[in-house]
């Protein structure tokens, strides 16, 4: 720490399950330089001010998706957000909204993991290929259909942005539906009918009211709102067309 460091106030919503009935705000004064991220600010607190502060991080380069938190009320990756953007104001940090707080800035993400698993986020081919048959082929245009939706890093910022998920925890939610869409649209996949059942449900696309904030906060420009809402159209077609040409669904 050099003498010309600036000092910024960082308020953190603390919650220690062993001691606390409910979360409370704790304020820290953190010296920083212009190239430091909010994550580095939190790390400074843990290293020098209060070692009991808990938070998740790994890659510190916006790719692992583990450092998401509410920064002044907006879900962001803390490694991709800089302290200087808020100075001389203060920063308030809180665990990602709409998830239970496990401890401090750490959420219980088991609900998201279960949903992610439920949509079968992997290619299920019509018939497995043998090694001799070689790889599954995909043209650039076929890749283009799914490329955007496959850049999701499972950071859950979109869930923290989605009030419908907060209001209805059963709702499948933005990232899971987007990944479902990504596999349904993949030319190498053949499990669309099966996944459509999840989409067609009340907890599927119909949980969405197009607030649209998920797409605003997504750090990877995945546009989950588009994936969800285009599937309202798909689900509607599926609903009416099943009488004409039965496929996928009960």
């Amino acid at each position: 720490m050099t003498s010309n460091d600036k000092i910024i106030e960082i308020e953190v919503l603390r919650y220690r399950p062993e001691q606390d009935e409910k979360p409370f705000l704790q304020s820290f004064k953190v010296p920083f330089t212009d190239d430091q991220s909010v994550l580095q600010g939190v790390q400074y607190i843990k290293d020098y001010l209060d070692g009991s502060l808990s938070f998740r991080w790994s890659c510190r380069m916006a790719i692992c998706g583990s450092c998401g938190m509410m920064i002044n009320g907006v879900p962001k990756l803390s490694c991709k957000t800089f302290l200087r953007e808020y100075y001389p104001g203060k920063i308030t940090l809180e665990a990602l909204k709409h998830f239970p707080i496990e401890k401090d800035l750490i959420i219980d993400l088991s609900d998201f993991i279960n949903k992610l698993e439920s949509i079968k986020p992997y290619i299920i081919p019509a018939a497995p290929r043998t090694l001799e048959q070689g790889e599954y082929l995909q043209t650039p245009r076929q890749l283009d259909r799914i490329a955007q939706f496959s850049s999701c890093i499972n950071c859950m910022l979109c869930y923290a942005a989605c009030p419908q998920y907060g209001l209805k925890p059963d709702y499948l939610g933005p990232a899971a539906i987007t990944l479902l869409h990504r596999y349904n649209e993949d030319n190498r996949d053949a499990a669309k009918a099966e996944r459509m059942q999840l989409l067609n449900a009340h907890e599927g696309v119909w949980g969405c009211t197009l607030v649209g904030y998920c797409s605003d906060v997504c750090p990877k420009d995945v546009d989950p709102a588009a994936a969800i809402n285009r599937n309202k159209l798909n689900s509607t077609m599926d609903y009416f067309l099943r009488f004409v040409a039965p496929r996928g669904g009960n």
């Binding site: 409910k22 707080i101 219980d108 009030p163």
Partner: peptide, 19 residues
């Protein structure tokens, strides 16, 4: 000693200009 804390949603629509 797990005791996940669920935050209330009351008044959510006023908490963000997007909402």
């Amino acid at each position: 000693t797990r005791k996940p804390y669920v935050r209330p949603m009351a008044g959510w629509w006023l908490k963000n200009p997007v909402y």
